[in-house]
Amino acid sequence: MTLDKAVLVFAGAVVLLSVLLSRFVHPLWILLAVFAGLNMIQAAFTGFCPAAMAFRKLGVKSGVAFR
């Protein structure tokens, strides 16, 4: 799995987890999905992605988007 795919899988999992938590635990968990969405938007413009940095340190090989 490349770094790009790992970041996308992680972001999708965070959004889905947030939706589930907001439905079954407390509605304010939806703010986690908002944070994830805003982070994806800023990463698209700046190329800075903390999740990509973390996955890189874990040894995931580089993809095209995050170098």
Rank of each mutant, 00 (worst) to 15 (best):
M1P: 08
M1W: 10
T2G: 05
L3D: 03
D4Q: 12
K5W: 06
K5Q: 12
K5C: 10
A6F: 02
A6P: 02
A6V: 05
L8Y: 11
V9F: 12
V9I: 13
F10D: 08
A11N: 13
G12P: 02
A13E: 05
A13K: 11
V14F: 03
V14Y: 05
V15D: 08
L17A: 13
L17M: 09
S18Q: 02
V19Q: 04
V19W: 01
V19K: 02
L20N: 07
S22P: 02
S22N: 00
S22F: 02
F24Y: 09
F24R: 02
F24K: 06
F24W: 04
V25K: 05
H26R: 08
H26E: 11
H26D: 09
H26Y: 00
H26S: 04
P27T: 01
P27C: 02
L28F: 10
L28D: 11
L28M: 11
W29L: 09
I30T: 07
I30R: 00
I30C: 00
L32P: 04
V34H: 01
V34G: 02
V34T: 08
F35K: 08
F35D: 06
F35G: 10
A36K: 01
G37R: 02
L38G: 07
L38D: 01
L38H: 01
N39D: 09
N39T: 09
M40E: 08
M40I: 06
I41R: 09
I41F: 07
I41C: 06
Q42I: 08
Q42K: 05
A43G: 11
A44H: 12
A44E: 12
F45Y: 10
T46N: 07
G47V: 04
F48S: 14
F48I: 13
C49P: 04
P50L: 14
P50C: 14
P50R: 08
M53K: 14
M53P: 08
M53Y: 13
L58A: 15
G59A: 13
G59Q: 13
V60I: 15
K61Y: 14
S62P: 14
G63W: 03
V64P: 09
A65S: 15
A65L: 15
F66R: 00
F66M: 11
